[in-house]
Amino acid sequence: MDISKSLYRIIINVGLFITIAITGCIMTGCATKIDTTVVLLPEPDGSVGEITVSTQANKEILNKSYESARVEKAGKSVEKGGVLNLDEVQEKFGVALAAQPLPPVVFILYFQSGGTELTDESKALIPDIMESINNRQSTDISVVGHTDRVGTTEKNWQLSMERAGFVVEMLISRGVKESIIEQSSHGESNPIIETEDEVAEPRNRRVEVMVR
């Protein structure tokens, strides 16, 4: 009698414990397995940045090329997964990587003093601009004109507009649709190199072309 009674009690207690454990598990989210894997990739120029992966339990820093970290499920701690090889990265992320658009690129075209004549180096850049527009199938190009501080603010504003207009016309003449180009001009107000008024600065006589 006594033995069966205590056995009965044990069974009830174990049952209760399991029920509480399962309920607790469901409530804290451990019933659904959610597995996060993070991989640090080298940037297009080869440099490697840094990321932090945090959970309730801990935090890990990744700063090596193809270094990985994994969190098995919600509430678990981050485990460093070592450096992955290219095949492993391709297997998991191949489709996503293939869908990655080329990052936007900025070209700076420099001008001779006082007008809309490009420097020879900048003329040579034009085929590169066209190539990047075609490679990206770009639908979004911005052209921004600038000047140095020689001359009045008003004249320079006018000149920066003419420079931007010159570049826009050049792109259109090479087959770029006008509707995808956004043109603006900043006059002398947005220099790369800060100077006193009336100082000639070739690096500020420019048009910036951003291809996205």
Binding site: V39, L40, P44, G49, E50, V53, T55, A74, K76
Partner: peptide, 12 residues
């Protein structure tokens, strides 16, 4: 299950 903070880089 995690929060990923990015200090300028490329990740998956």
């Amino acid at each position: 299950s995690a929060t990923i903070g990015i200090r300028g880089t490329h990740i998956a």
